[in-house]
Design a binder for these strands. Structure first.
Lengths: 252, 252
DNA sequence: GTGCTGAAGTTGGCTGTACAACTTCAGCCA
DNA sequence: TGGCTGAAGTTGTACAGCCAACTTCAGCAC
């Protein structure tokens, strides 16, 4: 809880957003959930109305408050949306749940990217990539199988890690690799022989699949991953509104 | 394509965003995909830099462009994110794909909400709701089964429609019901007897489930729906970034 | 009581300004 | 060649102000 909340660094509007998020979670805005007016918040926190609006737009995008011309904002929910990194990193996510994350690297190889992989990572013919296969556990129970391909310079860092390393993304971050954007696609697939063996299910059993393409701040792809979860272990939730939608339903 | 693009009404930043979206889709920013600076766009369109930034933040949230201090923005992708209403309305969505949407209302009843339903819609004990069960088809092929509960005054409108009505949401919109926010949760479930009969699959077969809670601009819940899709018919895609994340992974 | 009207309150939209933080790149120096 | 430095360019953050659009509600007329 005290990781991102109550922060003392960074932009003012972000600190303010964190403050307000905490206030909402603690039920500080009464039973009707009406927030103070932007002007009142501005005076209260000693910032301009513009800064307040910036902070509130963050909460709005996260589905925490409404916004509607003519009336004060009201609390929509206290839904704790995870940070971007908690979504990228299985390890971070597990820890935020209070569970013990585990990982076993089954295989990691360096090879030339095939056409499909080149397209996913935006690479030129002949480019080298790393393929990584890992089994992920939560409190020692197998949950998910992760097939990731990394761009060469990132994969090289991964290859330098111990096979027992629980988190792959944390070391990357420490070495200056920055993940900035990702596109996630969720659908349903059936376990192949490898999935079945590693996850301990039957071949052909249904699995939830999350495919993810992540890029750095410049828009350069860094990794492309296909994760397969055992049924009943996770679900994915997304909030959207007329004001902002990053969600889409696709025909398979 | 020409539904939301090239608009001539609404806020300036929205029109500008639509313009820029179109320009990106048509590849107007060259092979490197570098956008003009905010200042240049402001002069070009005769608006202030603030308005340009508002427009660009929309594209940013949709994953169309990067944004990074110090450098110009670059095109990330042309991913067509759907409008909020296309996500809410199966009918609108199907039409945007060029497919023929169909719907058959199996059952619609008015009754007293049980505790679970009351919680979902934020109702007081004894409140009345409408339960609607529908089978949805795409080009006459069964795709999805939809179990929706509506708040009383909305359900009453639904109940007044013909059983053959393809779209339920469009009539609601015409009668002034406004959907503003929604929270979607995607996971995997197994078909019960009813699912199996209606969708033509076997009992116990895996299905993709999307649960959705939608509210009006004031934050009042309007509907709560549980949709079950046959495997291989749809997938859900969401873009997120360090700047904005409305997505979260939940432990089941 | 019912319904209308208008004032007050609130958020949305747009402009302008200023500075901070960061990236890029040319040019210089060793 | 290699690396450093500094200037120019660009986006991020914050402030202040103005008006429009909308909601709410008290007060009034009927």
């Amino acid at each position: 809880m005290a990781g991102t909340d109550g922060r003392t660094t960074g932009a003012r509007y972000r600190r303010l957003a964190a403050d307000l998020r905490e206030a909402i979670a603690s039920g500080a805005f009464g039973s009707d959930g009406r927030l103070p007016s932007e002007e009142q918040l501005a005076q209260q926190y000693g910032v301009s109305r513009g800064t307040v609006r910036q902070a509130l737009s963050v909460l709005r995008a996260n589905g925490l408050v409404t916004s509607r011309r003519g009336t004060r904002r009201v609390v929509l929910g206290t839904a704790r949306t995870q940070s971007f990194m908690e979504l990228m990193s299985f390890t971070l996510w597990a820890r935020s749940l209070g569970e013990e994350p585990g990982g076993r690297t089954i295989d990691i190889t360096r090879c030339t990217a095939n056409p499909l992989e080149r397209e996913q990572l935006g690479l030129a013919p002949g480019a080298e990539i790393y393929r990584v296969l890992r089994l992920r556990t939560l409190s020692r129970v197998p949950i998910m199988i992760e097939r990731t391909i990394y761009v060469e310079h990132v994969g090289a860092m991964i290859a330098g890690l111990e096979p027992e390393a629980i988190s792959h993304i944390e070391p990357l971050t420490e070495q200056g690799v920055v993940f900035a954007d990702a596109e996630h696609t969720v659908d349903l697939v059936y376990a192949d022989a490898e999935d079945a063996e590693l996850l301990g299910c039957e071949e052909g059993a249904p699995l939830m699949r999350e495919r993810r393409r992540a890029t750095d701040p410049a828009g350069t792809p860094l990794e492309w991953s296909e994760d397969r979860y055992l049924p009943g272990t996770v679900s994915f939730t997304v909030h959207n509104s007329v004001a902002s939608t990053a969600l889409s339903r696709r025909r398979a």
